[in-house]
């Protein structure tokens, strides 16, 4: 295991910039944090999960599918240098894994893998949460892991690409530090239990329609819950015809919108606020469970933070469990 001091990180990432397009958490002018290039603001690797969709680095809000010249010839976006992303939390990583599988399953989504495949993903863990709180270890599923421990970052590699990068770091971690990392406690998120209980309720169909009506009256259809979710992948398609070319792009869509499933003839299987709110929660907690054997919500808290009226998935799950009792999964 390698070690690098906090102050050396910027230099290290700069060094990588010759081979990679760097995305790291930076401090924004409004005091928030987000993925940015190394020169977009002060490096802010610590501070916990970023508030917006971390998987947007591979699946941006608006992404060109292809362009076509006036002669009909296909133009595909130039491949930029591979991405190096540091700043996923272990939780974000589970979300990434979830959508990696989604995009690979059946028809492989080459537009997603265009950037995903060549990317290097580095996780952050250890004492780098909000106010120095402990974040869970990734223990794999990424190329590199940066583990914060008293002013230093221990660096662990899990892939060849990760190894190659770790080699650039001269410092070797001390045996004590390695032992300390080994002894870090697992972290239990109490909300995860609530989500599981809610999932169990939905899977046995124990939640009546009236519940969804009660919740949905609060929804202002901002679409934010979907747009910050690391595992939401729905998109719409748009064509723009310029004088010299056609551009077809896809952009994030939201199942909280009436037009999401409205058909040309006007029929709409999701035609009410209540049906749409049910679909949002049901999809993550029941449908994904049935399809993938795994919940589609990893309880990152983003939708609860962005929802202007406070009906993110955890808030709803809490109310559901309070009203309809708790079932133990399995």
């Amino acid at each position: 295991m390698k070690t690098i001091a906090d102050l050396e990180l910027v230099g290290f990432f700069r060094q990588l910039a010759s081979d990679y397009d760097i995305r790291v958490p930076v401090l924004l002018p409004d005091g928030g944090r987000a993925f940015g290039s190394i020169d977009d603001g002060a490096l802010a690797l610590g501070g916990g999960a970023l508030p917006t969709k971390p998987t947007a680095v591979f699946f941006p809000q608006d992404d060109t599918l292809f362009a076509q010249g006036s002669g009909g010839e296909l133009l595909v976006p130039e491949h930029s240098r591979p991405l190096f992303i540091a700043g996923f939390t272990a939780l974000d990583l589970r979300c990434l894994k979830f959508i990696d599988r989604f995009f690979a399953d059946g028809f492989r989504d080459d537009v997603y893998f265009r950037t995903r495949e060549s990317a290097v993903v580095a996780t952050v863990s250890g004492y780098c949460g909000p106010d120095g709180a402990l974040l869970p270890l990734a223990n794999g599923d990424c190329d590199l892991e940066f583990i914060a421990l008293r002013g230093q970052w221990l660096v662990r590699a899990y892939s060849n690409k990760g190894e190659a990068i770790a080699l650039l770091i001269p410092g070797e971690a001390s045996a004590d530090a390695v032992a300390e990392v080994g002894a870090l406690a697992a972290i239990v998120n109490p909300d995860e239990e609530v989500i599981k209980a809610a999932s169990a309720l939905l899977l046995v169909d124990a939640v009546p329609d009236s519940f969804w009506e009660e919740i949905a009256v609060n929804c202002i259809q901002c679409s934010g819950c979907n747009l910050v979710c690391p595992t939401c992948t729905c998109f719409g398609v748009q064509d723009w015809r310029y004088a010299d070319r056609l551009e077809r792009s896809r952009m994030w869509d939201s199942c909280q919108l009436d037009g999401f499933m409205r058909e040309a003839g006007g029929h709409n299987p999701l035609g009410t606020d209540a049906l749409r709110t049910r679909r949002r929660i049901h999809h993550k907690l029941a449908a994904d469970m049935t399809k993938w054997g795994e919940l589609g919500c990893f309880v990152c808290g983003r939708c609860d933070a962005t929802c202007p009226t406070g009906i993110g998935i955890v808030a709803i799950a809490r109310q559901m469990v309070a009203q309809y009792g708790s079932f133990q999964a399995g």
Partner: peptide
Amino acid sequence: IGVEPSSTHPISRGGLCI
């Protein structure tokens, strides 16, 4: 290629409307 709400703004507070 997209927008992100300002997470610390006193009005938007990390949200935006459609």
